[in-house]
Simulated assay, not measured.
Amino acid sequence: MSENAALARVHADIEKAAGLLGVPCERAKVRTILDAYEEHVARSVIAFRVATGARNAGDLDCRLTMFPPDTDPYATALAHDLTPKTDHPVGGLLGEIHRQFPVDTSGIDFGVVGGFKKTWSFFPGDALQRVEPLAELPSMPPALGENLEFLTRHGLADRVSLVGIDYRHRTVNTYFGNAPSVCFEPGTMRAILREIGLPEPSERLLRLGREAFGIYTTFGWDSPRVERICFAAMTRDPLTLPVRIEPEIEHFLRHYPHEGDDRRSVYAITAAPDGEYHKVQAYYQWRAQMLDIMLLSDSEEDGG
């Protein structure tokens, strides 16, 4: 399939996916973003992200990942006027990460309404990074280093697998690969949330912990605290997880367009100061290498 044909197919299916949620798809905005990353679209892993809560209402996010290691997705966004240039440290962070750390692949998030939102930088699965040198980057939120003791205590400080940079909300996500299994036990999950001043976890969050493989934290530049923490489970069918799925997400999962018959999703619950919200990352275009990037095996992707 030619690059133009691939773009047209992906664009049409993004519109279909947005329609399932009643989200108006900004055709010109979406096409401008796809055109900017045209050379990567056909070979990317592509996922749709649907989430509950007011913060996520009225949009469908799309994630493109597995860009080549030498790609600078933020520079591409600036070059195509997808995001405004800024003097805030958020604008310098990706370059610092890519210059000083081994980046295996990268990617972006964009909304069909909100446009360009995030970049993602994945470290090699056999070279997970330590929090301490990341925290020393000039543009990194100081909150990451200020929470080093907390992350060390829970066995996460040397397991950073992925860094996400949210340019709109000016926050940073740090994902932890091969997190200790104790992190997903009910007692530990309660302790983690208590330590960072978040509400007691719901039973749904505790049940998801039985199947979870991933954990990540969110930091900003304006607060020393961990702003949010998220637990995620990889599954071929989120409807089999031991949690109740919101009707709008269930409807989306049953009907969203996807490539081939092999469906995969990541279902996650985020704990935040104003309560929990749920999200699903449903893969539209999958590549088997993604399991290695996510530090999962075939036997692990259905939970735990």
Rank of each mutant, 00 (worst) to 15 (best):
N4R: 10
L20H: 12
V23L: 11
C25S: 10
E26M: 05
A28E: 15
I33L: 09
H40T: 02
A42D: 09
A42G: 07
A51H: 11
A57S: 14
G58N: 03
D61C: 07
M66A: 15
F67S: 01
P73Y: 00
H80D: 03
L82D: 01
T86M: 12
L94G: 09
T105F: 06
F110M: 11
G115Q: 02
K118D: 03
S121R: 05
G125D: 05
L128G: 04
V131S: 01
L134N: 02
P141N: 00
G145V: 02
T152D: 08
D158H: 13
R159E: 14
V163W: 04
G164Y: 00
H169I: 13
H169C: 04
H169L: 15
V172M: 06
F176H: 09
P180W: 05
F184R: 04
F184V: 05
M189A: 10
R190E: 11
G197T: 03
P201C: 05
E203Y: 05
R210F: 13
R210K: 12
S223T: 10
S223K: 10
R228C: 08
T235E: 03
T235W: 07
R236Q: 14
P238K: 03
T240H: 09
E259N: 15
R263D: 12
R264S: 09
R264G: 07
V266E: 10
A271V: 06
P273S: 05
Y284L: 04
Y284Q: 04
S299W: 05
